[in-house]
């Protein structure tokens, strides 16, 4: 059985950043990229299922959609226990929204026929919480969002999961498989990659495909497959509070003043 883990390369912005000329996104030159934190937990959940199963019976496949540079997050995933990596090049996906990205992932899932798709609950940079559950909808598979505990034996017809709700309430449910689950932070403790596994990961091939290669039609690619369009990105005008300057001793003196002013 395969477990497919789609991962995202998330961006954090430099202190100073500029927008693209069309004003619809941040210029990527001002971004630093890393593997989405939520996806690290999804990957670890997949690797733990593999390790609990008979050796060689489960293959963890990671997938990302992006340019050449996005291979970095796949290498990181390979070093943390994934067996195989696929990158679908994002040329032609400039106008894609999360649903259009999910169309690519769903096609790869149709081709790979995994028993489970595990995604991060959301991305740390944009936080749409759309991609994973859109993949489920496109595949017509059962789905559960924000999973904080997962019990699944490869081959079983259902998985027992806990989903974490607002306020820390937990609902325990049983969900049909194959299923798409989105994974919450804290479900496990993602492992660190050893130097040896990093070396091995760097030697592994990464399968590179185009949206057409995976079987998408023109009407499903990029903007054509999207349900939304970014019209404008802007930096909001926000009031900044009083910044307390000085030495730590002066800062704390002022802080104690504030505490006694507010608490009366």
């Amino acid at each position: 059985m395969k477990i497919l883990v789609p991962v995202k390369r998330v961006a954090s912005l430099d202190d100073e950043f500029e927008l693209n000329d069309d004003g619809r996104d941040v210029d990527p030159d001002f971004c630093e990229f890393d593997l989405n934190e939520f996806d690290e937990y999804a990957l670890e959940a997949a690797v733990q299922i593999k390790e609990a199963a008979p050796e060689g019976s489960v293959e963890v496949v990671v997938l990302t959609i992006g340019p050449d540079d996005a291979d970095d997050v796949l290498r990181k995933a390979l070093a943390k226990g994934a067996d195989r990596a696929i990158r679908v090049d994002d040329a032609g996906l400039e106008e894609a929204d999360r649903v259009a990205i999910a169309r690519v992932i769903a096609k790869v899932a149709e081709n790979e026929e995994p028993g489970l798709v595990l995604c991060g609950a959301q991305s740390a940079d944009q936080g749409n919480a759309q991609t994973g559950m859109s993949v489920a909808a496109l595949l017509g598979w059962a789905r559960t969002a924000v999973v904080s505990k997962l019990d699944f034996t490869p081959g079983a017809a259902t998985a027992q999961v806990e989903r974490e709700l607002e306020g820390g309430l937990v609902e325990r449910i049983e969900v049909e498989t194959p299923a798409v689950l989105t994974i919450q932070l804290g479900i496990n403790t993602p492992r660190y990659a050893s130097l040896r596994s990093i070396k091995q990961a760097n030697a592994k091939p990464i399968e590179c495909l185009t949206p057409h290669d995976v079987g998408l039609a023109d009407a499903e690619i990029g903007g054509a497959g999207a349900l939304s369009r970014v019209r404008r990105v802007f930096v909001p005008e926000r009031g900044r509070g009083e910044i307390i300057a000085g030495t730590p001793s002066q800062q704390v003196a002022r802080l104690l003043e504030i505490i006694s002013e507010v608490n009366g």
Binding site: A11, S12, L13, F17, V26, A124, D125, Q126, G127, S228, R229, V230, R231, R232, V233, F234, V235, P236
Partner: peptide, 10 residues
């Protein structure tokens, strides 16, 4: 977007 650093009109 971008961890609350920009606003996005859709």
């Amino acid at each position: 977007g971008y961890n609350e650093k920009v606003f996005v009109e859709i």
